[in-house]
C-alpha cells in the first residue's frame, strides 16, 4: 500500500487526511478552547457567579476594570465569570440535545432506508411533516407549556432537530443497501439485524459522526435563542440568558456593551467551532464528497480500469 492512499480505517490515516483541512483544524482548536473553558470553569473564573454579592449602585454595569476585566452586569456580577460558566450550559445542551437528535434521526433513517416499503413511507412522511413545522415557534410553545428546566429544553431541542439527520442517514442507508457485500451477507444466510449491525451501521457511522458535530452547533444556537426569549431555566446561567438579562435590564441604555458583546461572541465562537469542525470531518468521512472517495480509492479505480480495458 503506497502512502498516497489514505485509509480512514485507522486513527493515523484519519488524522493524516483531517490535517489537510485548514478549516477543520481551526474548528478543532476553537472547539477544544470552549470545552476546556467549560470543564475548568471553576479554576479559570475569577469569581463564582452563584456567590451572593453585596452590590452598591456603582457595581451595576460597571465598566471593565482591573477588578472586573469585562465589567459587571445588572446585578453587579462579574461578566467574565458569567461568560466562562455560561459555556457549560451551552455545551451541555448542545451535546445532549444533539445526541437525542442523532439517535432518533439515525434510527428513523436506518429503519426507513433499510426496510423500505410501508415503514419507509410512514417514517419519511412523518419526517417531512416535522421538517415543515418551524422548529423555533414549536419549541417556544412546548417550553412555555412545560416547566422551562434544563432537561426540558434539552429534550425539546433534541426532539425537534432530528429531521435533517434522518433524511441524510436514510439516503446513505439506501446507497449502502445496494452494495454487493450486503447481497453477499444475505447469501451467507445473515438476517436483517446482522446486516444492519455489521454492514449498514459501520458504513453510515462516519456520516452520523459528522452530522452530530453539525447538529451540536444548531442545538447551541437553539438553546441561546430560547434563553434569549426568556424561556430558560432561571437557575442555569447560559449565554442566551446573559443576553436576555442584558437586553431586558437596560444594558443598552447604560451603554454597557460588555454585557451584550461577550455572550454574543461566545455563541458565535461555539457555533463556528462546531461548523468548521463538522465541515473538516465531513471532508474526511463523508463518502459522498469526492475528495475522500478518490483519496481512498485511487488504486481501486486504477485496477478496475485496467481489468476492463
Amino acid at each position: 500500500m503506497s502512502d498516497t492512499a489514505v485509509s480512514t480505517t485507522s486513527i493515523r490515516g484519519f488524522w493524516r487526511s483531517f490535517r489537510r483541512s485548514r478549516m477543520g483544524l481551526i474548528g478543532l482548536f476553537m472547539f477544544l478552547v470552549v470545552v476546556l473553558m467549560a470543564v475548568f470553569a471553576p479554576a479559570i473564573a475569577p469569581y463564582d457567579p452563584k456567590e451572593v454579592v453585596r452590590v452598591t449602585i456603582d457595581d451595576i454595569y460597571a465598566a471593565p476594570s482591573a477588578e472586573h476585566w469585562l465589567g459587571t452586569d445588572d446585578a453587579g456580577r462579574d461578566v467574565l465569570s458569567n461568560f466562562i460558566y455560561g459555556s457549560r450550559v451551552s455545551l451541555i445542551v448542545g451535546f445532549f440535545a444533539s445526541f437525542i437528535s442523532i439517535f432518533i434521526g439515525s434510527f428513523v433513517g436506518i429503519v426507513a432506508g433499510f426496510y423500505g416499503g410501508r415503514a419507509e413511507n410512514i417514517l419519511m412522511r412523518f419526517t417531512d411533516i416535522m421538517l415543515v413545522i418551524p422548529d423555533l415557534p414549536l419549541a417556544v410553545v412546548i417550553v412555555a407549556l412545560t416547566k422551562p428546566s434544563l432537561w426540558n429544553i434539552i429534550f425539546v431541542i433534541g426532539a425537534l432537530g432530528w429531521t435533517g439527520s434522518a433524511r441524510l442517514v436514510r439516503s446513505q442507508t439506501l446507497a449502502v443497501k445496494q452494495r454487493k457485500f450486503v447481497l453477499r451477507a444475505r447469501s451467507i444466510g445473515a438476517g436483517n439485524m446482522h446486516i444492519i449491525r455489521y454492514h449498514i451501521l459501520p458504513m453510515v457511522l462516519p456520516l452520523i459522526v459528522v452530522n452530530t458535530v453539525l447538529v451540536i452547533s444548531l442545538a447551541i444556537l437553539n438553546e441561546s435563542t430560547l434563553s434569549f426569549l426568556g424561556l430558560s431555566d432561571p437557575t442555569a446561567l447560559s449565554w442566551g440568558q446573559m443576553l436576555n438579562f442584558a437586553f431586558t435590564r437596560g444594558a443598552m441604555s447604560a451603554r454597557a456593551w460588555w454585557a451584550l458583546v461577550m455572550p454574543g461572541l461566545g455563541i458565535v465562537w461555539a457555533v463556528l467551532a462546531c461548523t468548521l469542525l463538522g465541515q473538516g470531518l465531513e471532508q474526511v468521512l463523508n463518502p459522498r464528497l469526492e475528495t475522500h472517495h478518490l483519496a481512498v480509492g485511487v488504486q481501486m479505480v486504477d485496477r478496475g480500469a485496467e481489468v476492463q480495458a
Binding site: 480505517t9 457485500f181 447469501s187 481501486m300
Partner: peptide
C-alpha cells in the same frame, strides 16, 4: 454459497 462477480464490491471495506 455464492461467489460474486465483483471482488471489489462484494467485500465490506470496513
Amino acid at each position: 454459497q455464492m461467489v460474486f462477480q465483483d471482488p471489489y464490491e462484494s467485500l465490506n471495506p470496513t
